[in-house]
């Protein structure tokens, strides 16, 4: 899925995250988290897996995590891609 505009999703409230996305030559993820030491690798893995399933291969993704569960991370990333993509083509069955 091609990212063609900047977009934002989520909040900076506890148990949530804010994610910004913008067009970029390749896929770059910048992650900040209050639980970076314990869960940083897991959060990035969930983010990469979510973007991979959406076919997003080129974008700058900036995540500011406030202790979100995996299901919230996926939801926020899918929302921001939906808002930034040229065309949203994902099936619900591919979003789990």
């Amino acid at each position: 899925m091609k990212i063609v505009r900047e977009a934002l999703a989520g909040t900076l409230e506890s148990s949530d995250l804010m994610v910004r996305i913008a067009p970029h030559p390749d896929l770059e993820i910048v992650l900040q988290s209050e639980v970076m030491r314990q869960f940083g690798a897991q959060i990035e893995a969930v983010a990469r897996d979510t973007l991979d399933k959406l076919g997003v291969t080129a974008a700058l993704v900036v995540i500011e995590d406030k202790g979100a569960l995996d299901c919230v991370i996926r939801a926020r990333l899918q929302t921001v891609v939906q808002r930034a993509a040229e065309e949203w083509t994902a099936e619900w069955s591919a979003l789990s």
Partner: peptide, 16 residues
Amino acid sequence: KDAARMLTFHALRSGL
């Protein structure tokens, strides 16, 4: 509306 729909979709599937 789009964000709420997506969050709810994942909350329902999470097993929480």
